[in-house]
Design a protein around this nucleic acid. Structure first.
Length: 612
DNA sequence: GCCGTTTTCGGCCCGACTGTTTTCAGTCG
């Protein structure tokens, strides 16, 4: 786990502990916010400067970090912990914190159990459920206890975030089901899925109803009922008129990493459905897309302008206590996201950017990369190593997608388990690729390799072999637990290698499973900029490596980005959407993505990169 | 505790749903 992740979790834990002690909620929120701010940084925040004073000054530049939080980070940099944590631990019985991880149970409930019921851990809670004493505590009753009992089994799985690809597969099924209902006009995924986050807490789906003479409430009920009883639902969490929540079962189905994935992932995921009239669709999409922080920022801005923003629309703020839409107030804007942002003087903001990372400060929208911009796949495997397509099929599939270029990049010899090619086999493979060019025309088939970057930064083939290839993708596969300093030296050496075009999955991390290496990313970006080496966003949803915050920092450093599907099977091309979303989250435009270049530009770059 | 296009003090988003209550608190997103 990276330093930033550890520090971020520490801040969030402190916030939860303060909540349990009933401390001021705004103060508590500041700790949680500091945790998110740290997690959003692409650089290790403890090593931004050599001296504490300079470090503190650098930290103060991060939004959400003030003097007090900066001091705590400096403390963490020196001692590896924050004194507040130990002090709070003294005040709280061990086991209490765990109780807040029960779904539907928050700090206030746990505090009451502790203060009024002397319940301080899971065993005592279970005993209090069994002997009926829990139901006698304030604001507890039969239904609450039954719900807690049911949700105890979800502990650990309910807060486990699901990878983007698995959640997207479920969302696709739910959306397809909803679209079969005659009442439904539109059904779209929102939430973190629409924003393209690498992991998804729950799936949010928004439905707009068709125009009809039937009463709105009646049609909402029909759709909600169908949703709550659709195939795959294992638990109904909430069932209101406007909003329903269920949990649906998750299948395995995660391709190359299936066996390992199933050990850790939740076996069900929450799906929230929000049903709205068409006239509120834009406001509903904004509310349900989030992020929460983006929404809060926008709602604060609305207040300053004399308005109030909710999921029904943007309204004049008349300071009445009841929501404006319930009183028939006419919204200033509500039907589309564009018109609501326009009221704020903002361009439409891409969902991927709505993370409160400064996106509301822009004046003109960037033209972000789109799936349709991608015209080349530069990282693909065949049956020669661990892919399942022959060269010809791979090339045909790429051509079908309208690509002008496909690079065949099988593994190098250091990956014997993945069928890595010995030098003799590689030379034969280059000839096979040449033959395939005569069979499949209308697309440029490049001979390449995904060559291992060895732990010391050297490559798995000698230069005279690499020179025979049209394209070289260099990737780390082994030694992924090495220390940051060694990892930095290793990756910078590969980036500086004159025959390397692209660095594949630069950290080797796997979402929810493996952290990979933690090199000094700024050093990598500086070297990549200097040497004109492209850095890959590996589009497989288990990788998404570079990750979003790295893409942003790489672009700021002036780097080129590649988005590759790392194709092993025909279906892997479909992962492109995840890689593109990750690029968009980092602010990637087509000009900076080598896969979006036309053929002449790309092939010219491949040659010039080597001084040819 | 953070922050400033009215503020260096005094704010800090908004609504749906549930369950325990008869008007609201807790949780969630």
């Amino acid at each position: 786990m990276s330093t930033n992740q550890r520090l971020s979790e520490l801040f969030e834990t402190i916030a939860r502990m303060m909540d349990l002690l009933g401390e001021d909620s705004f103060r508590t929120a500041a700790f949680a916010k500091a945790g998110r701010a740290v997690a959003d940084q692409s650089q290790d925040v403890t090593t931004l400067a050599d001296t504490p004073a300079v470090l503190k000054a650098k930290l103060l530049e991060i939004p959400g970090i003030g003097k007090s939080m900066a001091d705590r980070i400096v403390e963490f940099a020196g001692t590896g912990t924050i004194a507040d944590f130990a002090a709070l631990s003294e005040k709280l019985p061990p086991g209490l914190l765990e109780l807040t991880t029960i779904p539907g149970v928050g700090a206030k409930s746990v505090r009451v159990w502790w203060q009024e019921g002397k319940i301080t851990n899971l065993a005592q809670l279970k005993a209090a459920i069994a002997d009926g004493s829990l139901a006698t505590l304030p604001r507890m009753g039969e239904k609450s206890v039954a719900k807690i009992k049911e949700n105890l089994s979800l502990m650990g799985s309910a807060d486990q975030r699901t990878s983007l690809g698995r959640a997207a597969a479920v969302a696709d099924i739910v959306v397809a089901f909803l679209l079969t209902l005659p009442e439904v006009e539109r059904a779209v995924p929102a939430g973190s899925l629409r924003r393209g986050k690498e992991t998804i807490g729950d799936i949010d789906v928004l439905v707009a109803l068709k125009e009809s003479k039937e009463p709105l409430a009646a049609r909402q009920r029909v759709v909600a009922e169908a949703f709550r009883t659709m195939p795959g639902v294992v638990q109904v969490i909430a069932s209101g008129e406007n909003k329903s929540s269920v949990r649906v079962g998750l299948d395995g189905g995660s391709g190359r990493w299936k066996a390992d994935e199933e050990k850790t992932a939740a076996n069900s995921i929450q799906v929230d459905l929000r049903i709205l009239p068409n006239s509120s669709f834009g406001a509903g999409m904004m509310y349900f897309t989030g992020s929460k922080e983006h929404n809060v920022r926008l709602r604060e801005r609305a207040l300053k302008l004399g308005w109030t923003l909710n999921e029904w629309g943007l309204f004049p703020n008349d300071a009445e206590p009841t929501p404006p839409h319930t009183r028939g107030v006419v919204p200033l804007a509500s039907a589309t996201e564009e018109e609501i942002y326009a009221k704020f003087g903002l361009p439409w903001i891409a969902p991927e950017l709505r993370e409160d990372r400064g996106e509301l400060e822009v004046t003109a929208a960037l033209r972000l990369i789109e799936v349709a911009d991608i015209k080349a796949e530069l990282h693909a495997h065949t049956t020669a190593s661990d892919g399942n397509m022959e060269i010809e099929e791979l090339a045909s599939r790429a051509k079908e997608r309208g690509f002008h270029t496909i690079a065949v990049t099988d593994h190098s010899k250091g990956q014997p388990v993945a069928g890595g090619l010995t030098i003799d086999r590689l030379l034969q493979h280059i000839e096979d690729i040449a033959k395939a060019r005569e069979v499949v025309t209308g697309i440029r088939i490049l001979a390449g390799s995904e060559v291992d970057i060895l732990a010391d930064g050297t490559l798995d083939y000698p230069d005279d072999i690499l020179r025979r290839l049209d394209v070289v993708v260099a990737s780390p596969h082994n030694g992924l637990t090495q220390d940051p300093q060694s990892a930095t030296r290793r990756m910078v050496a590969a980036i500086r290698h004159p025959l390397v075009h692209i660095i594949g999955h630069p950290t080797g991390r796997l979402v929810n499973r493996r952290n990979g290496i933690s090199p000094d990313m700024a050093a990598l970006f500086a070297a990549a900029k200097e040497c004109n080496t492209a850095l890959e966003i590996n589009a497989h949803w288990m990788r998404l490596d570079l990750r979003d915050i790295h893409v942003k920092a790489a672009l700021e450093a002036g780097c080129l980005i590649a988005i590759n599907c790392d194709v092993h099977a025909a279906g892997d091309f479909e992962n492109l959407r995840f890689g593109v979303k990750t690029g968009r989250r980092g602010g990637l435009t087509p000009e900076r993505c080598i896969n979006a270049w036309d053929a002449a530009t790309l092939h010219g770059w491949l040659k010039r990169k080597r001084g040819g």
